[in-house]
């Protein structure tokens, strides 16, 4: 699935670097260096998750935008701001239409599943 590239996959390469940082670097540094090593570990873990989850999330996002008649997030954002998605009597969450809010919420949850899954409540 990664042709023409040979193993390891991009995710496996990232994982290897992350494991080296965790097992060899982190225990041997302290203070600011350890903090920045931990940030690096977290960034690599995020990249691994994005490689795994990203393609399906991108497909779901495209489908959802089409259902709302928007080409991309920029158009969606602009139409929300213009009030084009205000509920106006139809079922709503806050101000905007319930289906629009649900799509935006699901997109944000997808972003967090990659960026920081522990943050989800």
């Amino acid at each position: 699935m990664t042709a023409p590239h040979d193993p390891p996959t991009a995710a496996q390469l990232t994982e290897a670097v992350r494991e080296w940082l965790e097992s060899q670097v982190m225990p041997n540094v302290s203070g600011a260096m350890q903090f920045h090593a931990r940030v690096a570990v977290n960034v690599l873990a995020m990249v691994e998750r994005e490689i795994g989850l990203g393609p399906a999330q991108a497909e779901r996002h495209r489908t959802g935008l089409v259902a709302l008649g928007c080409a991309d997030d920029a158009e969606l954002a602009r139409r929300i701001r213009e009030g084009a998605f205000d509920a106006g009597g139809v079922e709503s969450v806050g101000v905007v239409r319930v289906d629009v809010e649900a799509f935006v919420f699901d997109s944000v949850v997808d972003k967090l599943r990659v960026a920081n899954p522990k943050y989800l409540r």
């Binding site: 954002a77 929300i80 935006v104």
Partner: peptide, 15 residues
């Protein structure tokens, strides 16, 4: 573009 923040701005303006 951050649609979630646009929803927040709409809500803040309306409330």
């Amino acid at each position: 573009a951050h649609p979630a923040f646009e929803i927040a701005f709409r809500w803040l303006e309306a409330n």
